[in-house]
């Protein structure tokens, strides 16, 4: 199949390769120019490139941390503190948003008129207001709460005040089984339990409540995608409505729910840097301080981007694996 020269130039195969080569060349050229430009500018301003700064003393405090930290620790440790803060708020947000979103999504399909309308109101109101504004609202609400002595006490062991949210914690030091540690108010302070700062609580509430509105729609669509015959078959066997939802409909709806749910989970992680607006020390907030002090903007931002990429890809991979597991077996 020897093509004539003219035919060769116009062949789709050749053209396909040519276009790809052109795109790659353009991307490489653009990237090279950006790197060169940056290096020249850094040299002019006398900033040394590289990640050496990570080992230096950070010199700034961080208001909350899951590991021990002091300003004498390194920048690396400060960034780890921020990363843990990001991961904790994202992980808890994902769990709570899933639970709340599922409840609201099911409620939207409820036969009960009032329940259905309230769920619709929730979805429409919350997903149409910018998350940043919602964070300000939650932060405002939480910091306007009464002081510790007049703390709201909605459930045993739970206190809500302008100090934040105090909840029971688990004490693993006593051996095999954890003991529940119930917080108590002594004087002006809470003893025992786990204290969540108003910043953390506001960010968690904002991320959870906002994302749950999207998850509710995803869950609703997933449920509607399950054929009506499935519910009818289950009804005809005498299963109750709750059992049908749990045992028949939701397991099948998962197939439809998981791919868009994955992107909502990623959104929670990717929206968490809005923390900076209310002063929660997440990874981005900490790295911002580090960048301001060291001037290593390129390295700092690259590091944060790499971490977020890594988190997102890991989460995606987990969800894909789970999606494969719940896929239906057919011929």
């Amino acid at each position: 199949m020897a093509a004539a020269p003219a035919g060769f130039w116009s062949s789709t195969r050749f053209r396909g390769v040519l276009y790809q080569v052109m795109v790659v060349a353009a991307v490489v050229a653009l990237g090279g120019w950006l790197v060169h430009n940056t290096l020249v500018n850094l040299e002019i301003r006398g900033i040394a490139t590289g990640f050496g700064f990570l080992a230096r003393e950070a010199g700034f405090g961080i208001s909350e941390s899951w590991i021990s930290y002091s300003p004498a620790d390194s920048y690396a440790r400060a960034l780890v503190v921020g990363l843990l803060n990001t991961m904790v708020v994202s992980a808890i947000g994902i769990v709570l948003a899933t639970v709340l979103g599922t409840v609201v999504g099911v409620a939207r399909l409820s036969g009960n008129w009032l329940v259905g309308k309230l769920a619709t109101l929730y979805v429409e109101a919350l997903r149409n207001v910018p998350l940043l504004l919602q964070l300000f609202v939650w932060y405002g609400v939480l910091t306007a709460l009464p002081g510790a002595r007049q703390a709201l006490h909605p459930l045993p062991g739970i206190f809500l005040s302008n100090r934040g949210l105090v909840i029971p914690s688990l004490d693993w030091s006593q051996g095999w089984l954890p003991a529940m540690e119930i917080p108590r108010l002594v004087g002006f302070n809470f003893i025992g339990g786990l204290t969540l700062s108003p910043e953390f609580a506001a960010l968690l509430a904002g991320l959870t409540i906002y994302t749950a509105a999207f998850i509710a729609e995803i869950v609703r669509a997933g449920i509607l995608a399950v054929p009506k015959g499935q519910t009818e078959a289950a009804l005809s066997l005498g299963l109750s409505r709750g059992q049908i939802l749990r045992l028949v409909v939701l397991p099948q709806a998962l197939r439809v729910i998981i791919p868009p749910l994955t992107s909502q989970y990623l959104n929670i992680a990717k929206n968490s840097p809005l923390a900076i607006a209310i002063g929660y020390p997440d990874l981005v907030a900490v790295s911002n301080t580090a960048i301001n002090q060291t001037g290593q903007a390129v390295e700092g931002v690259a590091l944060v981007m790499a971490v977020f990429l890594g988190l997102s890809l890991t989460l995606s991979a987990l969800m894909n694996w789970y999606n494969k597991r719940v896929a239906l077996v057919t011929r």
Partner: peptide, 25 residues
């Protein structure tokens, strides 16, 4: 009841389709 379109539960095995109601109901 037996339906025109079978309506078996596709996420459960044949055996699980048959034991669901006896166990749960």
């Amino acid at each position: 009841m037996v339906f025109q379109s079978f309506n078996l539960f596709p996420h459960l095995t044949v055996l699980e389709n048959l034991t669901l109601a006896p166990v749960r109901v």
